[in-house]
Write a protein that binds this DNA or RNA. Structure first.
Lengths: 189, 189
DNA sequence: GTCTATACAGCGATAGAC
DNA sequence: GTCTATCGCTGTATAGAC
């Protein structure tokens, strides 16, 4: 059912721009071109199930396009460059925000367990890549935390400052720091 | 009117935890112990004026406790250490989120011009401190962006991962990088 | 200034015709 | 499967008694 998938993608943009509470069925009906009745046919569980489906689709995209590459047998540095590139594409170079991050800040976090999982899986996949590059687990975890926090914060700041290009600038520096982690053999500052 | 100020502080926690849309008058009435009628007596403009007052109070706190120190004649490194300490205190070591960042992610950003100002002023004050420490404007801007994005992202990640201590860890590494910027005289990698 | 009562619009959700 | 009509409820906001 490609139809359902495309409906979910449209719902995602509504949730992304308005947050969980701000995303009304009226808006979602307009965005998808489906009446409320049809929405409830696709998602019998109502708004909650819609949000669930949206987060799952997003998680699935990151799993396929980002996390899988990190876990592949690519050279760590290449895997990370690919991650950065895909992230930049996904967030439209700072013109899109992170729905999962948005949910995380509110009380929606507690309703949707996938919020925690999304960050957990990402952090672990990135840290493992850095371990493959020769870092200790402790250093790798630290660098992964910094990178993921940096990306999320860059999305917040870019939107707050109305400066999408800030995202690209910060992202490039995050990439550089991760590459340094790949090159430096030893250290432990 | 200290009464109004303490009401605003309580309203702030509701907005912080539920976002603009999720913060209902019923919740705010309970949080403040004031009836709806009284809330409208304090804030004739309704919910919008409440949110306005909340953001202003937060901006005021940061102005007094953080930005002013950055602009003072303190040694840059000391000013930055003070900033980090106050930020850690304010966000209760990762157990509190940033209301302004939360608003920035949603459509509330466009309703409240102070969201933009909050980040703008912070970034500029921090960058100026780094310039005082001998950095070029370009390098200072970059480091300030990284630091502010890092802080915001750390709040998102800490909450998403249910790991408040992540905030302290990331914050310490941000501090270290800022201190490095103070020490290095030249560079331009 | 505080409260309770209430107006009325919009919410999520459901029913039922087609 | 799609729509429209409608339910019951909660939302913001206001009126008016005290």
């Amino acid at each position: 059912m490609g139809d359902r998938a495309s409906a979910i993608a449209k719902l995602a943009e509504v949730f992304r721009e308005r947050g969980y509470e701000g995303a009304s069925l009226a808006l979602m009906s307009r965005a998808t071109g489906l009446g409320k009745g049809s929405l409830y046919n696709y998602f019998p569980g109502g708004k909650d199930e819609m949000a669930d489906a949206v987060i799952d689709q997003i998680s699935g995209w990151f799993e396929e396009e980002v996390f899988t590459s990190l876990r592949s047998d690519l050279v760590p540095a290449d895997a990370i460059m690919l991650m950065i590139e895909r992230v930049d594409t996904y967030f439209r170079s700072g013109r899109r925000t992170c729905l999962v991050g948005n949910f995380a800040l509110g009380d929606s976090r507690d309703r949707f367990s996938q919020v925690n999982a999304y960050f957990e899986v990402w952090k672990e996949a990135l840290a493992q890549t850095l371990v493959r590059a020769g870092r200790s687990k402790v250093d790798a975890d630290a660098a992964a935390e910094d990178a993921i926090a940096g990306i999320q914060g860059a999305l917040v700041a870019a939107r707050a400052l109305n400066d999408p290009e800030l995202f690209g600038r910060v992202l490039r520096r995050i990439e550089r720091r991760l590459m340094d982690q790949c090159l430096a053999i030893h250290a432990r500052i």
